[in-house]
Design a protein around this nucleic acid. Structure first.
Length: 299
DNA sequence: TACCAGGTGGAGT
DNA sequence: ACTCCACATGGT
C-alpha cells in the first residue's frame, strides 16, 4: 500500500467494543464472512456491498475502524455491519452456559465474539460457494468473482471490486463461472440467478420474512439446503435462531455432547431445543472452539 | 497418497 | 423417509 492510498482513509475511530486479536480474527475470518484480509501489521481490510473498511486493535484492546475519506456514509455502514448497537455479550449471557460446561468454555475462549450483519444477497452467493470447500478456498472463489465480474468500488483505491449482483450473475455463462474455481457450484449459482431474475423483489421479501418462512423460501433455490439457508439467515438476515449444521457442528455435538451417529436433522433439533432462540449464536461459539483445537485431537 | 472441506440433489431402496 | 453417491478442486 502506498502513501497515496493511505491518505485516502478517514482518521481511525474508536468503535467501543473491546476485543482481542484472536476473537477479531475469528469474527472476520472464521467462516462467517469471506472478504476480510489482514496485513502483517494486523490491519484488517474488508468489503461488503459498495463499502470498504479497515479495522485494527489498539494496544489496549480498543477496536478502531476507518473508511475511505470521501465515503460520508461509510462509518455508519461499518457500525451497522458490525451491529455495534447490539450487545452480543448480553445475548451470550442468555445462553444456557450456567448448566452447560462446554458452552461456558466456548464463551470464555472467544469473549466478545459477534455476528456481523452481511448483505443478504452476498451472503447467499458466498454460501452457495461453500459446499464442501475450506474457508480459504471459499475466499478465493469469492475474490475471483468480484475481480472478474464485480463493479469497481466507489472511493476505491486500485483494484477493489464489489461482488457481482444477482442480476449480473444471471448474465454470466456457467462455463465462465467455472473459471472462478466454482466447480459444480457454478450450476447452483447459475440456477439461483435465473430463479431470482424471474422473480423481482423475491430476495428482498425473503430477507424480511420470519425465520421459518424465510428458510422455506430459500430452500426453493437450487444449491440451498438446510445448512446454507441457515447460514444465509444467520449471517445475512440477523436471524439468531438459525442453527447451521455443518461437518464441524456434527463433530462438535458428537464429541462434546455425546451425539454420536446423529444425523444433521437430529443435531439441528437438539440445537434448537438445547440452546433456544439464540441457537445460532451458540453455534458460532461451538464452531469456533472446535476448529481451534489442535489437529491431532480434531479428526 | 489418501482424506477432507461451513452440502445438495437425485436415484434407488 | 432413509441411504448412497456424483459433483470439482485445492488443502493438509
Amino acid at each position: 500500500m502506498n502513501s497515496a492510498e493511505l491518505s485516502a482513509w478517514s482518521p481511525w475511530t474508536p468503535l467501543g467494543v473491546p476485543l482481542n486479536p484472536h476473537v477479531l480474527a475469528e469474527t472476520l475470518d472464521g467462516g462467517q464472512a469471506f472478504r476480510w484480509r489482514v496485513d502483517p501489521n494486523g490491519t484488517w481490510t474488508g468489503q461488503w456491498a459498495d463499502q470498504v473498511a479497515q479495522l485494527r486493535l489498539e494496544s489496549d484492546g480498543t477496536l478502531v475502524g476507518r473508511v475511505p475519506s470521501g465515503s460520508t456514509a461509510g462509518l455508519e455502514a461499518l457500525r451497522a455491519y458490525l451491529r455495534l448497537d447490539t450487545d452480543f455479550a448480553a445475548l451470550a449471557d442468555q445462553l444456557p452456559w450456567r448448566t452447560d460446561a462446554h458452552l461456558a468454555a466456548c464463551l470464555a475462549a472467544f469473549p466478545g465474539l459477534r455476528l456481523p450483519r452481511q448483505p443478504f444477497g452476498e451472503t447467499l452467493l458466498c454460501f452457495l460457494c461453500s459446499a464442501t470447500k475450506q474457508i480459504v478456498q471459499i475466499k478465493q472463489m469469492v475474490a475471483l468473482l468480484a475481480e472478474k465480474y464485480g463493479a469497481p468500488l466507489p472511493h476505491a483505491d486500485t483494484g477493489r471490486h464489489q461482488l457481482p449482483t444477482w442480476a449480473e450473475l444471471a448474465q454470466i455463462p456457467e462455463a465462465a463461472l467455472r473459471g472462478c474455481l466454482l466447480g459444480f457450484r457454478a450450476r447452483y449459482i447459475k440456477g439461483t440467478a435465473a430463479y431470482l431474475a424471474a422473480r423481482p423483489g423475491w430476495l428482498e421479501e425473503t430477507e424480511h420474512l420470519p425465520y421459518p418462512a424465510a428458510k422455506a423460501r430459500l430452500m426453493d433455490l437450487p444449491g440451498v439446503g438446510e445448512k446454507v439457508a441457515d447460514c444465509v439467515l444467520l449471517f445475512g438476515a440477523g436471524q439468531l435462531e438459525a442453527f447451521p449444521v455443518d461437518t464441524w457442528i456434527l463433530k462438535a455435538l458428537a464429541r462434546r455432547y455425546g451425539l454420536n451417529g446423529w444425523t444433521p436433522a437430529q443435531v439441528a433439533q437438539f440445537g434448537r431445543a438445547h440452546f433456544g432462540n439464540l441457537a445460532g449464536l451458540a453455534q458460532q461459539y461451538l464452531f469456533a472452539w472446535e476448529r481451534d483445537q489442535p489437529r491431532e485431537f480434531n479428526r
